[in-house]
Design a protein around this nucleic acid. Structure first.
Lengths: 220, 220
DNA sequence: CAGTATCCGATGCGATACTG
DNA sequence: CAGTATCGCATCGGATACTG
């Protein structure tokens, strides 16, 4: 990268940094709480290691990201500087626009179940959860071929933590959700109401009480 | 271009379109009122024709820009669709952030006098102008070598129109402004107040009444 | 885990020339 | 004026392998 537009205009100067492949997604991940190298990669799975390193260095050089030695000795910790935090307004504007105008441009290959379930995980309202562990199993159809290994996933809602599993964690499943991933994405993005899709596009098997409570827990 | 991040996230989908080299600047120009191919090039002088065509086609394909046959027969007219207009929020956020956090990253080579004077032109408050034509001549120092042909420029403030000239228009000059272009840019961007720089960094020769009224006319 | 190093292919893009 | 066409280089970035 390291592009110059030869303009003093603030839009141009900001774009020199931000209008680069992958960069907005990395910033988004840091805003969503990712703080390690692999946290970021989890949220941006298709980026290569080398490019992620390069982008993080650029963002550091521009005073948006800072890297600290992690206390435990191993690895580093990434975080946003005040200038990076100030980008929330930009990312929010981008998200708002994207939500309104890019819905019909979601390709089949964009429907990554892992990103969906990790997104759901972020939304969990811990305070709304009951006092016992709840295990939700997702079984998606319509998953792109490159992501079939995430066709089935588990969301473990615990009192102290919420975990996502790609392999059967062994706990008894309270509720299994089935349906086309596109329909789940539509609900996740707020384009379709949970109650309008539940029972038709989205199918549940298991505890009906939990099925009823789920949209509250996931703040859908 | 035509990149996919493989994510349904609205930030990702918006970035697929907007986080491309030159694209935010083209959108900015359209927002600032540019409507012909060369209007846009004037505001983004370093872009090549071929790339500008390519970007405009991409923006059309994404429903942000529309191209119409111009009435007069010759050429086309570019404009923003409603989806393009909705990008004002994104560009404004970018500008606001850039103004706050990229000031110290303005390079010498970013100080293009033509962009500065065209920017001033846009700001002119036509209603505040007096009833006669005013000719202001700019004579900048510190201009990057590649832009020396714009070292001296004229701004013609007329009742019905405001024009920028690169060559002496022949009219008698009411006021000549001299000084380092960087200082003028600082005032233009609002980082330094006109009244704090006037007389020190910025020098005036000519009608003192006009010098006094100028910041009002240019809304500085 | 969190990178680094190397390679090579794709393509983005600038330069130049041409056109209705 | 508003592009189109072609070319060739530079660099971006993906794949793979290696490392403390």
């Amino acid at each position: 990268m390291s592009v110059s537009y030869g303009q003093f205009c603030p839009v141009a100067k900001a774009s020199e940094i931000l209008a680069a492949r992958w960069t907005p997604l990395i910033v988004r991940e840091l805003m969503e709480g990712a703080c390690s190298f692999n946290d970021i990669r989890r949220g941006v799975p298709l980026i290569s290691r080398a490019v992620l390193v390069a982008r993080l260095r650029e963002l550091q050089a521009h005073g948006i990201v800072e890297r600290r030695q992690r206390a435990g000795g191993a690895g580093h910790q990434y975080g946003l500087t005040p200038a990076g935090e100030a980008l929330r307004a930009v990312v929010a504007a981008l998200a708002q626009w994207g939500l309104t105008y890019t819905q019909d441009r979601i390709n089949h290959s964009d429907l990554d179940p892992a990103l969906l379930v990790w997104g759901l995980r972020r939304r969990v309202d811990m305070k709304a959860l009951p006092d016992r562990r709840i295990v939700v199993r997702f079984d998606f159809s319509g998953v792109p071929a490159s992501r079939t290994k995430f066709r089935i996933m588990w969301l473990i809602l615990g009192r102290s933590s919420v975990d996502v599993c790609m392999k059967d964690p062994g706990f008894p499943v309270d509720l299994t959700l089935r349906g086309n991933i596109r329909d789940y994405v539509d609900v996740y993005l707020g384009q379709v109401r949970w109650k309008d899709a539940a029972g038709t596009a989205l199918h549940f098997e298991g505890d009906r009480q939990i099925a009823k409570a789920l949209p509250r827990w996931l703040q859908l």
